[in-house]
């Protein structure tokens, strides 16, 4: 799956360019608020609980300054990707102990044809290995330039 395919699962309404939260619990709550505001999702508590459960497994902040909160839940009917950014950085209990600035949140239904969810996750993780790209994403002025940088335009 290429990055263009992955970006079909997000939208400008699912882009939070300036998270206010500074800790993990508040960041997850703000992210779920963003998901509800940007979609027709009806059950935010279920999504929040799922994302918290996933963090209990181990932090999803696995890249330098990047986290990938993710999981499956009945509360959504299709793969939905929210992108969030924190200027100040969030203490997301990252592996390297550093602050997290970029969040790619993948929420998938219990079953998805062709495992789009895991493939999307793998594509994003692979793409974000590039340190120059991460710097561009932190500075991108808006959703369009953020996506253009991700696509390598």
């Amino acid at each position: 799956m290429d990055i263009v395919e992955v970006l079909k699962h997000t939208s400008p309404a699912l882009f939070l360019p300036d998270l206010k939260a500074t800790d993990k619990a508040s960041a997850l709550a703000e992210i779920v608020e963003g998901l509800v505001a940007g979609t027709s999702i009806q059950n935010p508590d279920t999504i929040l609980q799922m994302l918290k459960s996933r963090e209990h497994l181990g932090s999803t902040a696995v890249g330098p300054g990047i986290a990938f909160p993710h999981g499956r839940t009945l509360a959504v009917q299709r793969l939905t990707i929210l992108i969030a950014r924190s200027r100040a950085g969030v203490d997301f209990e990252s592996e390297d102990g550093g602050p997290t600035h970029l969040f790619f949140v993948l929420v998938a239904p219990p079953q998805d044809s062709g495992h789009q969810y895991i493939k999307s996750l793998a594509t994003l993780i692979d793409r974000l290995q590039d340190g120059d790209l991460r710097a561009k994403l932190r500075d991108a002025a808006d959703y369009e330039s953020f996506c253009a940088a991700l696509k390598g335009d």
Partner: peptide
């Protein structure tokens, strides 16, 4: 039902 949905999500995870 809320608990059952959360339980199912957790079981799947």
């Amino acid at each position: 039902l809320q608990l059952l949905v959360a339980l199912q999500d957790m079981d799947q995870m």
